[in-house]
Amino acid sequence: MRLVLTGGGTGGHIYPALAIGREVAEKEPGSELLYIGTKKGLESRIVPAQGLPFESIDISGIRRSLSLENVRTVIRFIQGVRRSKALLKRFKPDIVVGTGGYVCGPVVYAASRLGIPTLIHEQNVVPGLTNKFLSRYASGVAVSFEDSLPHFARVGNVKYAGNPVASTMVKANKAQGYASLGLAPGTPFVLVTGGSGGARALNDAVLAMLPGLVSLAGVHLVLVTGDRYYEQTAERVKALPADVAKRVHVLSYVNNMPEVLAASSMIISRAGASFLAEVTSLGVPAVLIPSPNVTNNHQQPNAESLAAAGAAEMILEKDLSGDGLLRSVSSIMRDAELREKMAKASRRLGTPNAATAIYEQMLELIHRK
């Protein structure tokens, strides 16, 4: 297969694209892939590091208020379409797959104008602006949440496939997760993460609840702070009573998140779509605090979807406190039957075969042409 991937701005768009690329390479050895992104986006660093050919176009997002910058964006879009057409004519892909972000707009639109099959993948429950626009032109749409389907009711070929990053989790080694944390196998622990950059609100709430950890005998807590908050958080943990501090493990970043996640008893986290795909593929009970600082508040519907299924509890950041968080953690960690019930609900939402489902949808679109 000759495949063009496009998606950028955040890891939530980039990693699903890379997962699709890996699936194609495994299913069809000798396939040729090309990734089209922007020079300023995170993809310009992540994709070449994966050994994939990378080309760039210049594009920016539409502002929600009247602005001269929007005029420049329209001009960049037109130029981006022209540049994308040139790249596509040269590469001659069988299909173009977009996973979100502004860069997808001109690339997928250009492919549709050239008669090349196109597929867009939506990670969140509520579609982003670019994917809403592209759904009018794409040959097909794949969604990560079943709750997304009504948003694409007018699309002829839309399928609930899941998020392809989930497919990488099935091989996660739980024993390696414990070993990397210096914990004995089977040690119950709560994993807290605010994403790669960390989240101050989560860190502060967890620090406020830590004195209450003494009531949860034998339970450890792994707090992934993000680089910005590591030193100050580590200092505050050192000031805790020794019997609590010895059960709190403060890390700035986790390089082996699949293994650590597989070993965890429950998780406290934001509600980014790709991370939730990993959580549900492993069936980890969760307390979710969606970030209010994202476009269209898109994390809240993600969290609500898991909460409605019984796989998670949701706490809005405005309602977050140390006492409230401790109550949620205590109720879950003290009740093995509840944890198993949440884990089963989570696994029912998991889509470990998502990458394969998307690959099969791609073949269908190619053969249809």
Rank of each mutant, 00 (worst) to 15 (best):
R136H: 12
N256S: 01
A345T: 00
S148M: 13
T280P: 03
N302H: 04
G41Y: 10
C104M: 04
V155I: 11
N124I: 03
M266S: 04
S252M: 06
S215E: 12
F77P: 15
E235F: 05
V254G: 09
V294F: 04
A307H: 14
R83F: 11
D243M: 06
L114Q: 00
L191K: 00
G98K: 10
E28D: 08
R2P: 06
R327A: 12
L33Y: 11
L316G: 13
S31A: 04
I14A: 05
E235I: 10
A179D: 15
P29Y: 02
N353Q: 12
S144L: 10
L42S: 14
V4C: 01
P150L: 11
R113W: 02
T280E: 01
G177S: 04
M209P: 13
K92L: 08
S265H: 04
L288P: 09
L3K: 13
Y253V: 03
N256P: 03
E259Y: 07
F275A: 07
G12L: 00
G105I: 01
A166Q: 02
L183A: 05
F77D: 12
G350A: 00
A175L: 14
Q176C: 13
S84A: 15
R63W: 13
G218V: 02
E122V: 14
E340M: 07
A303R: 08
E43A: 07
P106T: 09
V108S: 09
L42R: 14
K39M: 08
G30K: 02
R339H: 03
S112D: 13
G115A: 04
S305K: 06
S328W: 09
V224W: 02
A217D: 09
E235V: 01
R228N: 10
E259Q: 03
M169Y: 01
V190E: 00
Q123F: 08
D323V: 15
P290K: 05
D227G: 14
R334A: 03
V158N: 08
L149P: 07
V81W: 01
E278S: 06
S44R: 14
K27N: 05
S67Q: 05
L216Y: 07
R63K: 15
A345C: 14
A25H: 15
T6H: 03
E304S: 10
E278M: 09
F152R: 01
R154A: 14
Q123Y: 12
M342K: 01
G156W: 12
E55D: 11
H367W: 15
E360A: 09
E28G: 12
K89P: 03
R22S: 10
A179H: 11
N302Y: 09
K238M: 13
Q79L: 15
A111D: 15
T130D: 01
L338I: 02
A142W: 12
P127N: 03
A86C: 02
T295W: 14
A308G: 15
R83K: 13
P53E: 05
M362F: 08
I366N: 05
G61Y: 01
R83Q: 05
A175V: 11
V4W: 07
V141C: 05
P211V: 08
P150H: 04
G226M: 06
N124R: 12
I332K: 00
D147S: 12
L33M: 09
V71Q: 07
V165T: 02
L338V: 06
V254Y: 04
